[in-house]
Design a binder for these strands. Structure first.
Lengths: 123, 123
DNA sequence: TTGTGTGCAAAGCATTTGCACGGCT
DNA sequence: AGCCGTGCAAATGCTTTGCACACAA
C-alpha cells in the first residue's frame, strides 16, 4: 500500500530537524530551497499523509496551522511575537486530561496555550 | 470606537442559539437563510471581531475552524461522525493546566480532544 | 457631521485536482 | 508489469479587499 519514496523521507527529515514549527507555506519554501525539484503539491500531499500516520502533528492556533515532528509535547503560541514554544506537561496531568473524557475514545489532544511569552512580557 | 449595529447583534445571537458548532461557511449559510440582506463579507468581518472581543471562540480541530459562543468549556471532535461535543473539565484540572506554563502569561487555551465518540464506538 | 460598518463584486491566495510520467515493489 | 507517488499547471473555493453608500455616535 504505502510506498517509501525519496520525497517522503526528505520531507519528514526536514520537519524533524526544524525547530521553528513551520506552516505549510513555510514548509514548501523550506523544502524548495534545498530541493527545488520537489513540487508543492507533493509537499501538501506528503505532509498530510505524515499527519495521518501520526509521524507529524498539526498545531492549530490563532495564527493558522503549524506542523511539528511528533515529539509528545504541547505548545504555547505568543500572540505578540508569533512564535511557538514547546510546553511539557507532567505525565499525571496528561493522564487526568485523557481520562476527563472517558466515555469517548480519545486518539489525540490538540492543546495550545495562547498568550504573551516571558520574553515579550518583560518588555 | 466600536459601534453597535443590527448585524453584529443578529450574528452574535445566531451563534449563541446554535448548538452545532458551525464553521464560517455554515454560519454564512445559516445567517443568509434568515437574513438574506446580510452579506458574507459582513459575516466574516463580524465573526472575526467577535472572536477578538472574546464573545465567540474558535474551535480549531482536524476538520478546520468551528465557532461557538464563549461558554467556558472545551470540545471533543469525533473523527468518524465529524460532530463536536462539549467537554467540561473540573476547575481544579483547568487551574493545573493554566499554571503548567507559569512563566508565560496565558490568555486562553485551545483544547480539543479528537477520537471516536461513544455513539460511533458502539457500532 | 464624521467616521466606522455594510453590501456587492472582484481580487487574492492557499489548497486541491487532473493527467501524464517516473520509479517502487 | 502494475500501480502508487510525483510534477506541473490549471481549477477550485475560502477569505479578503476596494469602493460607494448607510447609519450609529
Amino acid at each position: 500500500m504505502e510506498r517509501k519514496t525519496k520525497q517522503r523521507e526528505i520531507i519528514l527529515e526536514i520537519i524533524k530537524n526544524c525547530y521553528t514549527h513551520p506552516t505549510m507555506k513555510e514548509l514548501v519554501e523550506l523544502i524548495n530551497a534545498k530541493y527545488p525539484s520537489i513540487g508543492q503539491a507533493t509537499v501538501y500531499r506528503t505532509v498530510n499523509k505524515l499527519v495521518e500516520d501520526n509521524k507529524v502533528i498539526k498545531i492549530e492556533c490563532s495564527d493558522g496551522i503549524h506542523y511539528d515532528y511528533n515529539r509528545e509535547h504541547f505548545h504555547f503560541y505568543c500572540l505578540k511575537c508569533k512564535r511557538i514554544e514547546d510546553v511539557s506537561l507532567n505525565k499525571d496531568l496528561i493522564d487526568k486530561l485523557l481520562s476527563s473524557s472517558k466515555l469517548d475514545d480519545v486518539k489525540r489532544i490538540n492543546l495550545v496555550y495562547e498568550g504573551i511569552c516571558k520574553s515579550c512580557k518583560g518588555k
